[in-house]
């Protein structure tokens, strides 16, 4: 799938061997499929949670959605934003803040969940 080339890489910053249209379209199709999968997970996991596949899916809807979303995120970042081909520096400019952002989100959710659990504990 990687149409990226080993051709004339990196003399100047302006000429990155960006992948071709074929790759872009393939990624686009995958993104579309993943989005459909997300909606399907929602539909089955919640609205048909009574039996069969839906029942199986119901307890893991949130983690599955998070994984699918992360996959889409990574695909866009790597192929459309060219982080796969561009300088590693750009990747770190994106990934380091993402780590801090994730820490902030997770910590806040945990702290508030803990706050409320602790409140219940008191009473």
């Amino acid at each position: 799938m990687t149409a990226h080339a080993d051709i004339a890489h990196g003399e100047t910053a302006h000429e990155h061997a960006h992948p071709g249209i074929g790759t872009y379209v393939k990624v686009g199709v995958i993104l579309f499929v993943l989005t459909a999968a997300e909606v399907a997970v929602y539909e089955f996991g919640y609205n048909h949670a009574g039996a069969g596949f839906g029942a199986l899916l119901h307890p893991v809807v949130i983690p599955v959605l998070l994984v699918l979303s992360a996959l889409k995120f990574a695909l866009v970042a790597m192929f459309y934003m060219h982080l796969k081909q561009d300088s590693r520096l750009f990747s770190s400019l994106f990934v380091f803040p993402l780590i801090i952002a994730a820490v902030v989100i997770v910590a806040l959710i945990a702290l508030f969940a803990y706050h409320y659990a602790f409140q219940k504990l008191i009473h």
Binding site: G10, T12, A13, H14, S87, L89, F90, L93, F94, F96, P97, L98, I100, A101, A102, V104, I105, L108, I109
Partner: peptide, 26 residues
Amino acid sequence: TGLDSRKMAIWTFIGSECLFFASLIS
């Protein structure tokens, strides 16, 4: 670095925006 300054700037800005949206999502 051999990289274009403006491209680096837009990436830096995007990195900063991550925290903006992280706060809103939180």
